[in-house]
């Protein structure tokens, strides 16, 4: 089995994404699990400019408040930090990080899109019963690959980086 990595496109952007992708994957899965996640500053890219420069759809609309208590050996200040609002082109989000004892303890996405309403109970009651339904259960048989929602939002990454920069400032 031969594996090979080929890098094209914006090296700087990909480098940034690669350096924090593992952090994001782990963090995203653990948002609701209250798992402490170490985020040493050496893994934190020094600038967001490679992601945000020229990004016409990224609009910093606010700088939400942050609270700090004390610095730690990791260089991250304790407290809650919210990155600038970023528009991905389809919605606006901001990312809040919580730092405890100099360690990144949680990440949350704040959704800033306008709200609406409109579920149609009548339609659901007609169509849903026509589908097979079953409780979820794990299948451990042979697979060639996995299909899942694995696409990263650059708006998410940009706002996260902004929040981490504030924690490290």
């Amino acid at each position: 089995m031969k594996k090979r990595n080929i890098v094209i496109g914006s090296i700087a952007t990909l480098g940034l994404v690669a350096s924090i992708s593992a952090l994001l994957i782990y963090s995203q899965h653990n948002l609701d699990e209250n798992v402490n996640l170490s985020a040493p500053t050496s893994k934190t890219p020094s600038s967001t400019s490679t992601v945000t420069s020229g990004t016409s759809q990224s609009t910093s609309t606010s700088t939400p408040t942050s609270s700090t208590t004390s610095s730690s050996s990791s260089g991250m200040k304790n407290g809650s930090f919210t990155g600038a609002s970023e528009n991905s082109g389809f919605q606006t989000i901001s990312v809040t990080v919580n730092i405890k004892n100099g360690v990144l303890s949680s990440i949350s996405v704040n959704e800033l899109a306008t709200d609406g309403s409109g579920t149609s109970a009548a339609i659901v009651s007609q169509a849903q019963p026509m589908l097979i339904n079953e409780a979820i259960s794990t299948d451990s048989g042979y697979i060639s690959a996995v299909s899942g929602a694995t696409y990263f939002s650059n708006a998410f990454i940009t706002s996260l980086q902004d929040a981490l920069n504030k924690a490290s400032a």
Binding site: E111, A113, T114
Partner: peptide, 20 residues
């Protein structure tokens, strides 16, 4: 193909209702 919200928060917009 699979679309979901679990990898990056709510990210797909309902363009008719203008909400996630």
């Amino acid at each position: 193909s699979t679309s979901g919200s679990y990898e990056r928060g709510y990210h797909i917009l309902n363009p008719i209702l203008k909400k996630s």
